[in-house]
Every structure is written in structure tokens, then in C-alpha cells.
Amino acid sequence: MIREYCKIFTAEARVNENFGSALEVVPQYLMYRPANSVPYATVEAELQGPFQTYCWADAGGKLNSKAISEVEQKCCTFQHWLHEWTHGNLLPTRLAGVDFKLTNIRVATKSKGYQGLSERGSPQVFDQFLTHHQCNYYCGLLGLRPLKPMDSLQPPTKTKGSRSPLLNRKMSVGSGSPHLPKKGSVSPHSQRRAGTSPKAPRKSQEPEDSNSTKAKAVDGR
């Protein structure tokens, strides 16, 4: 099944001329041996050259990968592509072989029995892959989406905030302002205007004084 996925990956990669050589999973054949104590066995073509491991998971389930050479980067891209293609249900945890020919592949499934495959990794491996994988040049050529943790994909919750302290301060200042008179109270300026002016009687007394002086002058004559 992984070989079929790799064929789809190779077909998409060859559309882009800049991708270069594509990966290939070496086919394995099931052989039946009735006279043997183990009647079934798998055989594959012999690979010529140094055998290397490009991506693997250690005994503790920690993912490790090399991303220096071209084939190593393309193996990391194949991990990213298969994870996105299967909506996060499949993840290659071991990719090894000679040059671009891969063999001895191990795949972790998010749920046991997914597409008939046995589970070879814990669910924590998928969460770890989201932070472990670093997108490279070939991920960009295939248009793969950057991996992000599930928590960051959730929209932030809106919290009901209290009123702004500046708004509260303005409201408190406006309510207790000394410039605004209270209802029912009379302004001291209006009291002065309504009352009689102390200068008014002085003006009214001036004509009386002038008449009295005129009367005294007549008597003196």
C-alpha cells in the first residue's frame, strides 16, 4: 500500500520539472514455501550500494531525520505529503534504502487497523511530527501546507471585558463635576441679580439732598 502512495507522490512530483529525481519504493513479493517451518516469506530485488536510513523513530518513539542531502530532504517531504494526503492518519516512521530506492518502510497509523495496517507508533508520534518537521524546498514545490499544532488552528475565544478605566474615569468626573449645578439649587449669581443692589438707594437719595439744599438757600434769602 505504501508503494501505491509513493507512486501518487512521484506522479505529482514529476509535474514540476525542478523536483528532479523522484523516490521509488522497491516492490516486495510474497513467496509460499510449504516445506518450510515458516511457509510465507517476502523477497525483493537486491540493492547495490551503501544502505542508509533517512528517517526513523527510536525505541522511545522520538522521531529523527536527516535533511542535508537531496534524497534526505525528499524523504522528509514524502512524510509531510503522506500525512497531509491521509488527513493525518498515516505517517512513515522509517524510510531507508539506497539512493532514491526505498525499502524496509514502517508506517504509524493514528487509529489501529486504518486501511488494514497495523499500528506501529503511539498517538504522540503524530503530535511530535507537527513540531519536528521542518518544511524544505521540495515541500514548497508541491505546495504543501505548513504544519501547525491543532491548538493554534482553533479560533481564539472572545472574553467579555469590563469597561475601559478611562471611560469609567470620564463618567465619574462628569457626574461629580463642580461646574454643573444640582437640580433645584439656585446659583449665587442669580441671587445677586434678583436681590436689590446696595447702590440703588444712594442714587435715590441724591435728589432729596439737592432739594433740601435748595430749600435752605431760599430761607437764607
Rank of each mutant, 00 (worst) to 15 (best):
L167H: 05
T42N: 11
E70V: 09
T157F: 00
F51T: 05
W81S: 02
S172I: 12
G220I: 10
Y32P: 02
Q154A: 12
F9I: 05
C55R: 06
G113L: 12
R14I: 04
K101C: 11
S162M: 07
G60K: 11
G176H: 13
L82D: 04
S210F: 10
F100W: 04
V98Q: 04
H80V: 01
S118H: 08
T42C: 10
F9V: 09
Q134H: 14
P39C: 08
R169C: 12
S185W: 05
G121W: 02
A57T: 14
S190A: 15
R202D: 13
E70T: 10
G184L: 03
G176R: 08
G113C: 11
R33T: 11
G143C: 07
S162T: 09
I68N: 15
G174I: 01
S204Q: 14
L95A: 13
S164P: 01
R94C: 15
Q134W: 02
K148T: 04
H132Q: 13
L47I: 04
V98S: 03
Y114Q: 05
A108M: 08
Q115W: 03
R193D: 14
F100V: 07
S69C: 03
L82M: 11
L90F: 14
K158S: 12
E12L: 01
V43A: 12
D151W: 01
V98L: 04
L117M: 15
T159Y: 07
I68S: 15
T159G: 00
S187H: 07
G121A: 13
K199L: 15
S212G: 04
K148Y: 00
K148Q: 14
V107E: 06
R14V: 02
D58W: 01
G143P: 01
L90C: 14
H189P: 00
D99W: 00
K216V: 08
P207G: 09
P123L: 10
W81E: 03
R202E: 15
E208P: 00
S164V: 01
K182C: 08
A22R: 04
F9H: 03
A35S: 12
H132D: 15
D151Q: 04
R120M: 11
T131N: 03
K183G: 06
H132N: 09
G195L: 12
T42K: 12
G49V: 04
H189Y: 10
M150C: 03
L95Y: 00
V125L: 14
A11H: 00
W85L: 11
S177G: 05
G20D: 04
L90W: 12
K160D: 15
P39A: 06
S197G: 09
V173G: 09
T93N: 13
Y29R: 10
R33C: 09
V98H: 02
D127N: 13
S152V: 05
E72K: 02
L141E: 08
L117P: 06
Y114T: 12
D219A: 11
P155W: 02
S69Y: 00
V15G: 05
Q205M: 13
P207K: 09
L102Q: 05
L47W: 03
